[in-house]
Amino acid sequence: MKKEIKFNLNGEAITLEVNPNEVLLEVLRDRLGAKSPKCGCDKGDCGTCTVMINGKTVRSCLVLAIEIDGQEVVTLEGLMDSGLTPLQKSFIEHNSFQCGFCAPGMILSATELLAKNQKPKREEIQEALSGNLCRCTGYTPIIDAITNLTK
């Protein structure tokens, strides 16, 4: 039942044998050491497992690892090749996170938004982040960090 898949993870070519029932989140964390995606709800509701497939954010808890054969996967680790991004710096300046559990999902979702829309309105930022649950901050410092960066 095992199958070999080849894909690109954060710029690196990976070849891996997976079982069809292995979930992407599990493979990224446990087999490939990419620990930024986290398991919050395990059913698509919270956004903490967010990664990008071909430039689009997805919930890695709802993707089978075998599906990413031939695709390009980016986790937060992959955005940081040359250090913190301006977006991340803005999050630090605004003290946007407390525990940080939601941070990878928030950062990837905001990155996806800014790639499409350099000057998002506040409502557009809210919509882009919705479905990324944060239990600590009340969202305001997260949204402020993005608004400030783009104004």
Binding site: P20, N21, E22, E26, C39, G40, D42, C49
Partner: peptide, 20 residues
């Protein structure tokens, strides 16, 4: 599902299937 603060994923899909 067991879960700790660092987002460790504890229970994978048990059911086995083929993929095409």
């Amino acid at each position: 599902m067991e879960n700790n603060f660092f987002g460790e994923y504890k229970v994978p899909i048990i059911h086995k299937f083929d993929y095409l």
